[in-house]
C-alpha cells in the first residue's frame, strides 16, 4: 500500500494555487470537499440541529488544544517530583492543576526512563489527546505510521532520527480504545540552570508521542 498522503489534500488543491493557505482561504478555489461541508453546515443550521454560533464556540475550544500545553505539563513534572507523581497517577487530574482541561475520558502519561522508551500509535484510527495537544500531526494519522509503528518501531524511530540502543526497551502503546496517552520524556542533561518555561520550550510536539526526545540547547 503506498497511498501515504493521508491527511493531505494536495490533489484537490491543484490548479496552480498555493496548496497550504492557513487563513480564510479566499484565494483558493472551492473544492468538492469544502463545498460539501458548507452545504452540510447550512442544512444543519436550517434544520436547527446546530447554530453558527455554536460552531464558532466549539472551534474556539478546539483551538485551545496545543502541544505547548503538554510541554508545560512535562516541564512541571521535571521540576516538581510531587507533580510528576500525580501526573503519572492521573494525567487528566494533573492537567487541571495547570488550568488545562482534558475532555477525553482518561489521559495516561507514559514515562521514558533509561530502561524504556515509549511510543504512541492508534492502529485502528487516529486517537490522540486532542483537547490537550490539538490535532495530531499528519504523520501520526498516516496509514504508513499506523501500520508500521507496532511492527517495526525501531526502524520507524530511526527514520525519525532516533536510534534507541538495544539495551533500552521500546514499548509501543496502541491507543485503540478509551484511553489517551502522552509521553513524559526524560529531562536532557545540561539543563539544570533552565527555568520551567525554558524547559517547556525544549519539549516539541513529537516528544509527546515518543517520536523525538528533548535535546539540551547546548548539545
Amino acid at each position: 500500500m503506498d497511498h501515504e498522503h493521508d491527511g493531505h489534500e494536495h490533489h484537490e488543491h491543484g490548479r496552480g494555487l498555493p496548496p497550504h493557505p492557513t487563513r480564510e482561504d479566499d484565494d483558493v478555489a472551492l473544492t468538492y470537499g469544502e463545498a460539501r461541508y458548507l452545504a452540510l453546515k447550512s442544512l444543519l443550521i436550517e434544520k436547527g440541529l446546530v447554530t453558527a454560533d455554536e460552531i464558532r464556540r466549539r472551534l474556539e475550544i478546539n483551538e485551545r488544544g496545543n502541544p505547548q500545553q503538554g510541554a508545560r505539563m512535562v516541564a512541571r513534572a521535571w521540576v516538581d517530583p510531587a507533580f510528576k507523581a500525580r501526573m503519572l497517577a492521573d494525567a487528566k487530574e494533573a492537567a487541571k492543576e495547570l488550568g488545562l482541561e482534558v475532555t477525553e475520558a482518561k489521559l495516561v502519561a507514559m514515562e521514558n526512563t533509561p530502561a524504556c522508551h515509549n511510543l504512541i500509535v492508534c492502529t485502528l484510527c487516529s486517537c490522540y489527546p486532542r483537547s490537550l495537544l490539538g490535532e495530531p500531526p499528519a504523520w501520526y494519522v498516516s496509514k504508513a505510521y499506523r501500520s508500521r509503528a507496532v511492527r517495526e518501531p525501531r526502524k520507524v524511530l530511526r527514520e525519525f532520527g532516533l536510534d534507541i540502543p538495544e539495551t533500552v526497551e521500546v514499548r509501543v502503546h496502541d491507543s485503540n480504545a478509551d484511553l489517551r496517552y502522552i509521553v513524559l520524556p526524560m529531562r536532557p542533561a545540561g539543563t539544570e540552570g533552565l527555568s520551567e518555561e525554558e524547559l517547556a520550550a525544549l519539549v516539541t510536539r513529537d516528544c509527546l508521542v515518543g517520536a523525538a526526545v528533548p535535546r539540551s540547547p547546548n548539545a
Binding site: 501515504e4 498522503h5 493531505h8 492557513t22 470537499g33 485502528l124 504508513a144 527514520e159
Partner: peptide, 22 residues
C-alpha cells in the same frame, strides 16, 4: 492496519485550512 506492510511515513506538516477546522 497494525502490522501490515507499508512504505515511507509522510513527514511534511499539514496545516488545516479554515473549512477543515470548522
Amino acid at each position: 492496519l497494525g502490522g501490515l506492510p507499508a512504505g515511507a511515513i509522510p513527514r511534511e506538516e499539514y496545516h488545516m485550512v479554515f473549512w477543515e477546522k470548522q
